[in-house]
Structures are given as C-alpha cells and as structure tokens.
C-alpha cells in the first residue's frame, strides 16, 4: 500500500523529463535556494551549482553545535560550486553512513573506529583537519571533589560518590573516549542510577548535565560555545589522554560508485588548504577569548 502511494507521488513529483543523475531535480529545492534567505556568500553562478551533484557530509554533532560548519560550509560552497548536505550525527553513525555508501565525505573524531573503517576499505583518503581536547566538566560545587585530579582518579571519585554523570550514550567519538576511560579504571557505570545516558548530541547533553548538576566529558569546542548557557565549569582538562583529533575521510568510490568522490576530494582539499586552516584556528577567538580548534598542522604529523 505505501509502495503504491509512493509510486504515485514519485510520478507526481517528477513529471519532468528523465533526469540525468546529476543534481536533484526537485522543484522545492530550487525554490528553497532561490528563497528569501540571503546565503552568507552569494553564489554567482547558480547554474554551475546545479550541474554539480550535491555533497553529502556526515559529521559529528560537535562541529555543527559549535557553529564551525556554519562558517566553513558556505565558504566551500562558494569556492567549489558544490551544494553541501550536512548531516550531523555521532561519529559512529557518520562512519556507518559511510560504510553503507550513504555519505560522500566524513568529518569525524574516533581514531580507532576510523582506522577500522579504512582497513575495511570503505574509505579512500583520511587526513587530519584539526584538534582540541576533551575536558571533564561538572557543577561548580564539585560534589565528587574531582577538581584538577588526573582524569582517571576524577572518574573514580565520581563513581565512589555516585555523583550524577551524564553520558552521550551513543556511538559518538566522545562516547568512545569516555568508554575507554571507564574501561581503563576497570569500572562499568552502565545501569547505575547516577549514570545518565542521554542518546543525544553534545550540545543537548551539556544542557542536560547543567540541569541535572552532573559531570560530563565534553569536547572543548562545544563546551566553550555553550558555556554562557551552562552552569558548569571545567573540572579536569589538558591531559594527553583527552586529546581529540578530527579527520576528514572520503568514501571509497571503488566500493560505492554512487559516491560523489570528486566533490569529496574538493572538500578535503578545501579543509586542508592553508587559508581554511587559518579560519579554523581563528574560529571563536573573538567570541570566546580562545580558539575552539587548533589547525592540524600543529599536530606535526603528515599521514
């Protein structure tokens, strides 16, 4: 039944002559683009944009929530002429979208899962883009007395005092780091009444932590950009164990012929270009007093 309906609609939506597989021949899309909004960067040649098939970018919520993509995506669109469809999910889900061929390019921060993704042949190129740190944040009153302790001791203190701990509880890169830290201290918090799994993005989880007066492992970028809405402060920061590296990965066109590799590669080149790297390093400095991300060049490794 739904299929019958679907067929009818598809016919209704596309009375137009057979499409070439480039571009989405949706009347709505065209209208949306022409709509009353004024894109931050105007696209002088909308015809060229239509020629280029859109790029599906699957990415982690942290990059979207802190506003970095709102800066970078319009720049890329203006420079390359590609229309970007950004889907912000956890790193795990983003990698899954890549493994299913449902995305063209990924911007993620879960190195272990990324390496497996590459080893399985789903990815073509993998390049570091930027980095920052995770930090443990919590309520100013610090019920677990975890402040300035090494991260593992801090977590142990939280577990001992049974203070609220908010976990992403999804497949995000942040969650993977959190899980590996719990594993290191040999404690499994899942199922404890003080351990709250939100299943939501970084920003939403921060707000829940603030409301519940709980601790949470957050990435620096999202925390800084949300700070004024939160009643949370950094508890533990700046340890090597909490380094957070973002990579951009192109989906392998040999495995997924439908992948828009050309656009994906253009996106990788854009992200790693010196000018973009400068933008990334300066992002948020004016507003938050310090950068949210550091350019990958700082890492000092070329892969």
């Amino acid at each position: 039944m739904p299929l019958v309906i679907l067929t009818i609609i598809l016919a209704a939506c596309h009375p137009s002559p057979p499409k070439t597989n480039k571009g989405v021949a949706s009347p709505f899309l065209v209208q949306a683009e022409k709509g009353s909004h004024s894109p931050p960067t105007s696209h002088p040649d909308s015809a060229s944009r239509q020629k280029n098939a859109p790029l599906i970018l699957a990415t982690t919520t942290s990059v979207q929530d802190c506003g970095l993509l709102d800066l970078l995506v319009p720049l890329f669109e203006a420079q390359s002429g590609y229309l970007v469809k950004t889907v912000a999910v956890g790193s795990g889900q983003a990698l899954q979208m890549g493994a299913d061929g449902n995305a063209d390019v990924l911007l993620v921060h879960d190195p272990t899962a990324e390496l497996q993704f590459m080893a399985e042949g789903y990815g073509k190129d993998r390049v570091p883009v930027m980095h920052n740190n995770f930090l443990l944040v919590g309520p100013p009153e610090d019920p677990a007395q975890a402040k300035a302790k090494p991260i593992l001791e801090a977590l142990q203190a939280i577990a001992n005092t049974q203070a609220y701990f908010i976990s992403r509880g999804d497949d995000s890169g942040t969650y993977q780091v959190e899980m590996s830290l719990w594993k290191t201290i040999g404690y499994n918090p899942q199922g404890q009444s003080w351990y709250i799994e939100t299943g939501q993005g970084m920003g939403a989880s921060l707000i829940i932590a603030s409301e519940k007066r709980g601790y949470l492992l957050a990435d620096q970028a999202t925390f800084l950009s949300y700070q004024d809405k939160l009643n949370l402060e950094p508890i533990v920061e700046g340890t090597q164990a909490l380094q957070n590296i973002y990579h951009v990965i192109t989906v392998n066109p040999q495995v997924f012929p439908r992948a828009n590799y050309e656009a994906a590669l253009a996106f990788v080149q854009f992200l790693t270009a010196p000018e973009t790297q400068k933008h990334i390093g300066e992002f948020g400095v004016q507003k938050y007093g310090k950068p949210l991300f550091f350019p990958a060049a700082d890492l000092g490794f070329g892969e």
């Binding site: 739904p2 309906i5 679907l6 609609i9 598809l10 939506c13 597989n21 571009g23 989405v24 949706s26 009347p27 709505f28 899309l29 949306a32 098939a53 859109p54 599906i56 469809k85 889907v87 299913d100 061929g101 449902n102 997924f256 439908r258 992948a259």
Partner: peptide, 29 residues
C-alpha cells in the same frame, strides 16, 4: 522512506534523500 531513499536503498539512484521532495513523500504517507 529513508531506507528506500538512501543511496544503499532501492530508490537511492533518484538522489532524493535529504531533499524537500523526500519530506513530501514521507508526509504524504
């Protein structure tokens, strides 16, 4: 509808996922 329209789905070749048309299809259903 997403499973149908994803690139890995049977109608993936239509490139409709993440378009307003895709939402219209779902809303009609």
């Amino acid at each position: 509808v997403a499973m149908l329209l994803w690139r890995s789905g049977p109608l993936g070749g239509l490139n409709l996922i993440y378009t307003p048309t895709a939402i219209v299809i779902a809303q009609v259903i």
